[in-house]
Simulated assay, not measured.
Amino acid sequence: MNDQSPDVENCGIDELVPKVGGPLTVGQVATMTGLSIDTLRWYERVGLLEGVARDHAGRRQYARTDLRRLAVLMRLRATGMPISEMLRYAELAKGGDATEPQRIQLLEAHRDRVLDHIANLHSDLDIINRKIAAYRGSRQSSAVSA
């Protein structure tokens, strides 16, 4: 997944990715990210994370660019983007600058779903807070009348 422009590729992701002195093994990346080794391998196999280098023995050697791409994928997944859309995004990113409008559209649609979800969570939280306040109010009323 290459977003071409350095500004677009980084867009705050560098803050989430630790500086590394050299390539990392799949086990090190699994420990660092909390993803399983199987998940990392699956991300490669299905095309979400392409181009991870291999050493002379065929072992994965993750570079900082791989970690940045992985950080984006993790954020998309954490915010509920379906794998099918993540795959579409990865495929579009391979297309370079020409696919930027489609990537923007895909990300805007996802952002709108995330914002709707957040609004619903705020409404749910408001009801929970009201229920807590009601319970506290009924306890205080009971203590005063006793």
Rank of each mutant, 00 (worst) to 15 (best):
R77Q: 14
A57I: 01
L106D: 06
R111W: 07
A71I: 02
R75A: 12
P101Q: 06
E100G: 03
G96D: 08
I104A: 11
L87M: 12
D112F: 02
Y89F: 15
A57M: 10
D66N: 12
A57F: 08
A78D: 15
H56M: 08
E85L: 07
Q105E: 15
R64K: 14
K94V: 00
L67T: 04
M74E: 12
G96T: 05
A71E: 09
D97I: 05
P101L: 10
T65D: 15
T99H: 04
A71N: 05
R103C: 03
G58Y: 12
Q61V: 04
E85R: 13
T99N: 05
A63K: 13
D55N: 12
R75P: 01
R88S: 05
G95C: 11
R60A: 10
L73R: 09
Y89H: 13
R59W: 14
Q102C: 01
K94W: 02
A109N: 14
R59K: 14
R103N: 00
R111H: 10
E85P: 00
H110Y: 08
I83T: 13
M74H: 03
P82T: 04
A98E: 15
L107Q: 07
A93G: 01
Y62N: 11
I104V: 15
P101T: 06
T99R: 07
G95Q: 15
T99F: 02
M74L: 11
E91W: 03
Q61E: 14
P101C: 06
R69N: 13
A90K: 10
E100H: 12
G95E: 15
Y89V: 03
H110E: 04
A71P: 00
H110F: 07
A71Q: 05
E85N: 11
T79M: 09
R77M: 04
L107N: 02
D66L: 03
M81C: 09
R68I: 09
A57L: 11
G95P: 01
S84M: 07
P82G: 08
R111A: 06
A63T: 13
M81Y: 13
L92R: 10
R64S: 13
L106Y: 10
E85K: 11
V72F: 14
A109C: 08
R77P: 01
E85D: 15
Q105T: 12
Y62M: 11
L107S: 03
I83G: 00
R69W: 04
T79Y: 08
H110R: 07
K94D: 03
L76G: 00
L70G: 05
M74V: 03
E85S: 09
H56V: 10
P82R: 15
R103F: 07
P82Q: 14
G96F: 11
L106M: 06
R69L: 01
R68L: 13
A78R: 14
Y62F: 15
A57P: 02
Y62P: 08
I83C: 02
R68M: 15
M74T: 09
L73Q: 12
H110N: 04
I83W: 06
Q102G: 02
T65F: 04
L70E: 09
L76W: 12
R59Q: 14
D66V: 03
R69I: 00
K94M: 06
R68S: 11
D66P: 02
E108P: 00
R68P: 00
E108A: 02
R60N: 08
L73V: 02
E85H: 13
M81D: 09
T99L: 01
